[in-house]
Nucleic acid binder design. Structure first.
Length: 422
RNA sequence: GUGGGCGUAGCUCAGUUGGCAGAGCGCCAGGUUGUGGUCCUGGAUGUCGUGGGUUCAAGUCCCAUCGCUCACCCCA
């Protein structure tokens, strides 16, 4: 084998690739119905955008970015996440100077240099939404609702919404100090100690059970919120409850990106191997300023397309797909000889123009091989066209499920097929 | 970055104490030169991941390396 996909990457192949398309479609549909416009940003950005936006202390920036110098000597990074680029684009084009909030959705690939395992690869696709320019708990609730609707539309029942707030720049410093004080009393390993200094909140997110046990008595954000944050969070919670969106309060949910404040949430699924998150997001009111823009509040999420497919597979939500992938073929052409092949090619275009899904035998197979192709295509009808039929200006229409075959004039075949297939 | 498991046909995998490279499925051809599926008959396909070592002899043992995979960590 000459080449294979780069380490830690994979290919989506038919028919399974249809599942990824279906997830993208279902997860973006609610946002489109809620006034979110589509945005595409470059697959790569100035490295500094992520370094400053996502945060130097995060794992993403400190060890997982695909960074290189381009031929002009610029430091470029393949995007590891979608929010910072969207905020950059909004600021660059002044979208925040118009009607607020700016509501956008996107769909694309992200890249992180990680050790691959089930549900975690060096490239992964996300669908995401961002709403900028409004500091309103109803917007947080809307954003969360749109994700929940997407999962529900796919039939997922094993997705749990974890909800938390991280406070704001008023109340977080006091909490941070309290937490740091607590962590200083623990005997921590070196990397964790360093994290406790730079971003102590992220220590709470550590997955190791032995550490979690020692964190049992750690101070929680929810006990240190200022009145504004407390009221904001209560409003988000009550709006979600009013909508019937089920959630679990998780005061230790922090998430790995530094720009989050106030509302954070994560959608988790319990059958993804060692991964759990299928989507997540939160409010990032300081991000715009971190990357040199004006104060601009924002809230959004990203849903992992690949992991959502895995979750659906774990729940057995797929089946009955077209074996070749794509839309199931309804009519299959079997031409005999060169002249018939030309005529069949034209006929195929007419059939497709009439709204039917049609394919034909390519590659000069004999009749037997072409019929085999018809069978494997899954088509209900085969159209057999040879010298004799051409002379009679007719085509043989064979119902492959009953083996019943009738001769139909060429001029009427599209009409007849439409009638049979409706 | 750390640790475990695994690399044999297109796919799933056997391969015994080291002794001729295998099966099922799939694919191709024929049975049927204008008719698919089922059936019957035949056929093709291998850098045994790669490189080195031990040995009369290595898919099998040893070393290295690459890849896959699972887990840690982190997250989508």
């Amino acid at each position: 084998m000459a080449f294979q996909s780069p380490k830690g990457t994979f290919d989506w192949l038919p028919p399974r690739s249809e599942r990824a398309l279906r997830v993208r479609e279902a997860v973006s549909a609610p946002a489109r119905r809620a006034g979110y416009g589509y945005i595409e940003t470059p697959t790569f950005e100035d490295t500094a955008l992520f370094a400053r936006g996502v945060g130097e202390s995060t794992d993403i920036v400190s060890k997982e970015m695909y960074t290189f110098d381009d031929k002009g000597g610029r430091s470029i990074t393949l995007r590891p996440e979608g929010t910072a680029p969207v905020v950059r684009a909004v600021l660059q084009h002044g979208l925040h100077n118009g009607r607020l909030p700016v509501k956008l959705w996107y769909s694309g690939n992200n890249f992180r240099y990680e050790r691959a395992q089930r549900g975690r690869y060096r490239h992964f696709s996300q669908v995401g939404i961002e709403a900028l320019g409004a500091d309103d708990p109803a917007l947080d609730a809307e954003v969360i609702l749109l994700a929940a609707e997407g999962y529900a539309a796919l039939g997922l029942t094993g997705v749990t919404l974890l909800l938390n707030t991280l406070g704001c720049k008023e109340c977080r410093p006091a909490y941070r100090a309290a937490l740091q004080g607590f962590l200083a009393g623990l005997d921590l390993d070196e990397p964790t100690r360093r994290r406790a200094e730079i971003n102590p909140l992220r220590v709470l997110d550590d997955g190791r059970p032995e550490l979690q046990a020692r964190l049992a008595a750690a101070p929680l954000v929810t006990d240190h919120l200022c009145e504004t944050c407390k009221a904001y969070h209560e409003e988000v919670r009550s709006l979600l409850s009013a909508l019937g969106v089920a959630y679990t309060d998780d005061p230790r949910l922090v998430r790995g990106l530094d720009y989050y404040m106030r509302t954070t949430f994560e959608f988790v699924h319990d059958r993804l191997g060692s991964q759990s998150a299928v989507g997540g997001g939160g409010r990032y009111d300081g991000l715009s300023e971190m990357i040199g823009g004006p104060p601009l509040p924002g809230v959004g999420w990203a849903i992992g397309v690949d992991r959502t497919v895995l979750a659906m597979e774990a729940e057995g939500l797929f089946g009955g797909e077209d074996p070749a992938g794509g839309v199931p073929v309804q009519v299959y052409g079997v031409p005999l000889g060169e002249e018939a092949r030309r005529r069949m090619f034209r006929l195929l275009a007419e059939i497709r123009a009439a709204g039917l899904v049609a394919d034909m035998a390519f590659g000069g197979k004999g009749l037997k091989g072409a019929m085999k192709g018809a069978d494997r295509s899954g088509a209900r009808f085969a159209l057999i066209l040879g010298e004799r039929d051409l002379a009679a200006q007719a085509v043989q229409v064979k119902d492959l499920s009953t083996a019943e075959q009738t001769e139909v004039p060429l001029a009427q075949v599209v009409h007849v097929l439409k009638g049979k297939i409706q």
